[in-house]
Design a protein around this nucleic acid. Structure first.
Lengths: 157, 157
DNA sequence: GACTAATAATACGATATCGTAGTATTTTCC
DNA sequence: GGAAAATACTACGATATCGTATTATTAGTC
């Protein structure tokens, strides 16, 4: 395991410059913006805070991201009637278009993995990966002051 | 597999805000700066380009990161006598100190994982994970990029 | 109901990142 | 051996991110 880390460090930890199509999309939009689009696509509607938490960035950053996406006509904003402090963000058809393009790329990546592993292996990988993630993602107690940075996840085994 | 993505999206995709100690360190230094320190620690000496490649950020960004680390007295720079275009970066004792703190945190994370999985599970996870990564990272042939993948690491702790 | 605390979001200034242009050195190849 | 291409960096302006202060709304307590 020690060497896993070493391997990761040694081989560099670049997360995402994997598919050329992604780089292509990143010519026009930030990675954060692209991720935001995908997240919104999955949730249909989402508040700014939720988005911040899901992206793992401060809310003030999401404010900026949202402004840029709005300016480009990719998202719509409307106040939540249930809680008028919140703003619900959703995709415009143009934004949906772009998010779909992203999904195509993502699905291609998934297919590559599915092609490389047997179904059994894939299943195993997912199970083990989740287990490991869960172990890492300890929810620390007591010490407040962690806010948007902290997202805890609910894993059903 | 579809739900893997969904899970990842639902649970947020920020990799690193996991251990409170990391957040503590990030009060003083950027994540990039911390990663840079760790990378330099592992390689002992490394050029700016290599660092950029390992971090997965543009060289111009590394120039800035380097300047900040230098200013804080955490790294040293010297021209490579073998290739006077390059600059070799290494840790000062103060930088090493900090990198070691990072490693302590990382090792704690590793231990958490090791505690959660049996040795066989862990091994399998690593194997499968690498296989999947490799599948993803295989970009179309032709212009080759050839990233580092040979590990043979020899560090005395 | 009114007061206080908590939450959701934005504004704004400070810092980090990135793309591109420019400089210096090395490699290629004739 | 020397011109042209490639490589390693830095400088600099544009954009993105972040922390903090501020405003608006809701939740909690008496």
């Amino acid at each position: 395991m020690e060497h896993l880390i070493r391997f990761l460090l040694q081989s560099g930890l670049k997360p995402f410059s994997i598919d050329p199509a992604i780089n292509e999309l990143e010519k026009n939009l930030t990675r954060s913006e692209l991720l935001a689009l995908i997240l919104i696509r999955f949730k249909k509607q989402i508040t700014m805070s939720q988005l911040a938490s899901d992206l793992g960035v401060p809310l003030s950053t999401v404010t900026n991201i949202g402004q840029r996406l709005k300016r480009r006509g990719l998202i719509e904003r409307q106040r939540d009637p249930k809680d008028r402090r919140s703003i619900l963000v959703s995709l415009t058809s143009e934004g949906m278009e772009l998010a779909n393009q992203m999904m195509i790329v993502l699905n291609r990546l998934i297919q590559r993995v599915e092609a490389a592993l047997t179904p059994e292996e894939l299943n195993q990988l997912i199970q083990l990966g989740m287990k490991a993630l869960k172990a890492i993602q300890t929810v620390e107690t007591g010490g407040e002051k962690e806010q948007a940075r902290l997202r805890k996840i609910q894993i059903s085994d």
